[in-house]
Amino acid sequence: MMSENGELSPDLHAEIKKLCGDGDLLAESGHFEDAVAQYNKALALIPFPKNDWEAATWILAAIADACFLSGLTTSAYEALQYAMTCPGGIGNPFLHLRLGQVLLDDGQGDRAADELMRAYMGAGLEIFAAEDARYLIFLKTRAEL
């Protein structure tokens, strides 16, 4: 499963990428539940402890995104919280964006503002371009951008 240098074996990496690719295609066509099922299969292949692996970070980001886009905010929150414990999680603008959105939708304005500001600081206004305008409008009520 793992090579001597602490990386996933090429075969395992390829299988994980295939499952995630299948999940991405499903998500792009709006089949979020099926996409999450594919992502979960990929996540299951990551050795324990899962949050030692960079692959877990991007799989959890995909799970969180699909859950968020389908309105499953509790599942999105859980995936985002786990992703933040993985390599590169903290400081990842996309993860901070989604976490801020989930928190704002849950009525947690102060925490949401903090996460949305982290997304803005990491990626600028562009990260909000394809998102519902209300998130950026909210952030502008908390900070001068």
Results as ranks from 00 to 15, higher is better:
Q108Y: 08
G122S: 05
A119L: 04
W58F: 13
F94V: 08
I137S: 05
L145I: 14
R134D: 06
P10V: 15
Y39R: 05
A119E: 02
R111W: 12
M84E: 06
L19E: 07
D105E: 12
Y39P: 01
D22T: 01
R98T: 01
L43C: 01
G6S: 10
A133R: 12
F68T: 12
S70Y: 10
A62M: 11
A61M: 13
E54Y: 12
S29V: 09
A55R: 08
Q38P: 00
E54W: 10
M121H: 10
R111C: 12
I127L: 06
W58E: 03
P93L: 09
N92I: 03
G91A: 05
A123W: 04
M121W: 04
E15Q: 14
R111M: 15
D22G: 02
P87T: 15
Y120L: 14
A79N: 02
L103Q: 11
Q108N: 13
F48K: 12
G91S: 08
G109I: 03
M2V: 15
N5E: 12
A62N: 15
W58R: 08
R111Q: 15
L69M: 12
N5R: 13
Y120S: 01
F68R: 14
L116N: 06
E131S: 09
M84C: 01
A64C: 08
M121C: 06
T57D: 02
I46W: 05
S3M: 13
E131D: 09
S9N: 07
T57K: 04
S29G: 00
R98M: 14
W53L: 04
E33G: 00
P93C: 07
C20T: 05
A130S: 09
N92Y: 03
A83V: 04
R134H: 07
H13I: 01
D34A: 12
Y77I: 00
A56C: 05
L116S: 07
L8T: 09
D105A: 11
Y39V: 01
Q38E: 12
S70E: 13
E131T: 05
A35V: 01
A37P: 00
A42D: 00
K50C: 03
D106W: 07
L25W: 04
L99F: 09
N51S: 01
F68C: 08
D114Y: 15
L25P: 00
N5L: 11
K41Y: 05
L139N: 05
A27C: 09
G89M: 06
G100T: 02
M84F: 13
L116P: 10
N40R: 15
W53P: 00
P47S: 08
A119V: 05
E33D: 11
C86Q: 10
D11I: 14
D65Q: 15
W58P: 00
A66F: 12
L99K: 07
G21F: 08
A79S: 10
A27T: 02
A112I: 11
A64Q: 06
A64S: 11
A55F: 10
I16M: 07
A113T: 07
F138Y: 13
D65R: 15
D110Y: 09
L116V: 11
Q81M: 10
A76Y: 02
A62L: 11
D65Y: 12
I63T: 11
C20D: 04
N5P: 00
P49I: 15
A129W: 04
L69C: 07
C86N: 06
A42S: 02
E115K: 13
Q38S: 12
L125Y: 07
M84Y: 07
